[in-house]
Amino acid sequence: MTIAGQEHTAAVKTARLRIWRGTSRDNGRYQEYDVKFEDGDSVLDGLVRLRVDCDPSLAVRFSCFNANVCKECTMLIDGTVEYACIAKLQPRLMQLDPLPNLPIVRDLVTDTLSRKERF
């Protein structure tokens, strides 16, 4: 069955994401990507789309996906600790870094688990 809704149109904007890629703070670089979005989309929406459409090697940790309960998607967004799933994409350059003061696993994923919960 097809769902016939009236057409809806929203303006498509572009965010430029400058993302830390690497396995430690000394071993890595920034990579930039353009991500299309509509008003209201979150940074995590952009990262998930980017992994599917353009770079599946990007590492990012999340689970509940915009519900903001798992608390796994924390990262630095323009230098401030934020949840990527509720921070909104903006039509400008946005810099994404892994959380400070924690070992980097890869890219935006830091080691947030207690030692005894890992191999």
Partner: peptide, 9 residues
């Protein structure tokens, strides 16, 4: 469904 809402499932 709409409008876009984040922060709540």
């Amino acid at each position: 469904l709409a409008p876009r809402m984040v922060g709540l499932d």
